[in-house]
Nucleic acid binder design. Structure first.
Lengths: 200, 200, 200, 200
DNA sequence: AGCTAATCGAGACGGTACGTCACGTCTTTAG
DNA sequence: CTAAAGACGTGACGTACCGTCTCGATTAGCT
């Protein structure tokens, strides 16, 4: 029961909403997240500050909306992973694409900002994960299950953990900048994940 | 030629340094990182603001110093990983300990704060990695090489990547809170990393 | 030619008008004039803001209407001053009543607010004077002229100035709060005005 | 006991104080009191807003300081009324000067603003009266007492009331704008006050 | 052992952004 | 078609911290 006299969403100005979201994306690119201010977003969007505060609780939330695919827009850049029958090749393809994305400033900057904020603000983090990350991860689960049915992956493997072995190392390098991300690295992660360390 | 009139470190007040570091740690626990302010640290430490600005470039740097083991102090809770000859057991032991640490608020809060800040501020991130993270990761490299020599790990495995398969998934869950961290999860990661996904 | 699309007074809602005026009076008592807002009046009156803006140019104007006797209503608490033939007694009676009014919070607060606003806003001031003050002052003129005809006041006296000698000192104390208003003070003003300072 | 952690007045910047006071006076002349904002004063003075809020509770208080003679500066435009032995002439001189002052925009605007604010804000009103008005009024008391000793004023006259008969009517016209202020009016007030209304 | 220069606690300063409030205008919805 | 409701752009509010800058009052470390 919202007792905060919630605003009437049906009267909301779509014009302003878009302007705010666009301005936020532009500015995060120009200034970086820490220097991004609500006042600047409002100014750039030609909007009153209150219009931002009315609809979003924080600049992170604005950015999340700005960055997230529009609700209805089907899928997040495709709603399934490729399945050529060759699991290793398919995973390499996808992880290489991920690496490319993370290496492109257009994606990198806002994504880092949101991720960092989510690390520290659990509420935002939850939103980030459920709206952006989890749908992506489910694609891996689906693909891995298909591989399992095709006998290419051992039946006792938990696809959730498997996915983490693939994605975790990439995310680690990306977020912490321990070593550069590269196609070679992505390939190595896929190969090692599929085969394991132990000699056979 | 440092024309910034660098302060004379020999005259530095150890008393103030400790008070600042302690205050920073206390406050990050009480308020969380975003509400942590230099003014509050100064007030809590009974110190002038300038004394902080003289010695640290940002609140993140203060926190890094506060959180980091004292320079020379012999490493970060031990300078090697256990080596009982049983690689799987040893790794489980270590990763379970890591999980426990991440589940304890005393470690979790400041560590998240620093990590998040490092995600977004490359300079701080580099310091964080080289002072805190990398030394830890090197321990894995060392242990894995030992296992390689003992024939428990295939000779063509790159220990750096291997370590990422182990640590990446844990870090992923910790930072993004996709799913809870647990001993079971740590064990599963170790097992899957060692064996790989492919049926054998 | 009024091109401001003047509202059609014949369609005006009397219900809303009264509610607004009542709300304004209530609120000025509760909050004082500076904290009185149009939004609060609208809310209290259960009225849209536009309904206020349509009919009044400012909150001061609302308050003026709220405070003023209804247009045609027979004058401002009686349309003449008493005339018992004893000028001094009559004036004391009237000024004592004025003092009492000014000492009663119900009158004091909105009257001060309006007066203060009129001091600073000439337009409102003019309205205030012509609608509320001047009719009152004319009563003094009338009474003084009667006294003049009865030979109780010297024929060369300008009743307008005389009235100011009576009313000015009371208003001075009231508005500037130099010293408290009292019946004794009112009496002293009447006596001194009638007799003058010079020994006779 | 000030528990608001009062600022340390000895460290106060005289430079900023003057700039603020000057800016306030300038701006009240340019914009009028209601449009005078603290932000504008700060901007014009080249000063942070906090520096104003640190030392003054309201824009009215700033203006009071700006308008008031500097504390120590001896007197408020002279510390006594003229005494030529001719009371009537002396009073006319003084009241005519007062009228001139009130008719000059340079004095009129800020003085009205302060007076109006004092009418509505008792705290400010008290400061206004005790710092600016009362010292002036005391000069009348002194002059009238001298006249009393010289036998030009009846001994039972209360100089305080007498002064109000002189000043009240002028203030009344000034503040309420009932009729214009003029030398003739001032003269008439003096004459009528001295002689009274009653025929002699 | 005293001098002297740096650091220290303190906090005022010019700023920027915050999040809130009210303004006066405009649009949408229910009677 | 009016009027309630309230979202909107605007702009000021008063507060919180920023990072810089004086201030004495301790401290050192070097004569």
């Amino acid at each position: 029961m919202a007792n905060k006299t919630a605003p009437d969403a049906s009267r909301r100005s779509e014009r302003s909403r878009r302007a705010i979201l666009d301005a936020a994306l532009e500015l995060v690119g120009e200034l970086g997240y820490p220097k991004l201010t609500i006042e600047a977003i409002a100014a750039r969007a030609g909007v009153g500050k209150q219009t931002i505060y009315r609809w979003w609780p924080s600049k992170a939330a604005v950015l999340l909306d700005a960055f997230a695919p529009d609700e209805d827009a089907e899928a997040v850049g495709g709603h399934e992973l490729p399945d050529t029958g060759d699991l290793e090749a398919d995973l390499k393809l996808v992880l290489r694409a991920t690496v490319d994305e993370m290496n492109s400033p257009k994606y990198d900057l806002p994504a880092r900002a949101l991720t960092a904020e989510g690390v520290v603000d659990p509420e935002l983090g939850a939103a980030f994960v459920s709206r952006l990350l989890e749908p992506q991860l489910q694609l891996y689960v689906t693909r891995l299950r298909a591989a399992q049915e095709a006998g290419q992956v051992a039946p006792d493997i938990d696809p959730r953990i498997a996915l983490e072995l693939l994605v975790g190392p990439i995310a680690h390098r990306w977020l912490l900048r321990t070593l550069p991300l590269s196609h070679e690295h992505a390939d190595a992660v896929v190969e090692m994940t599929l085969r394991g360390l132990t000699p056979r």
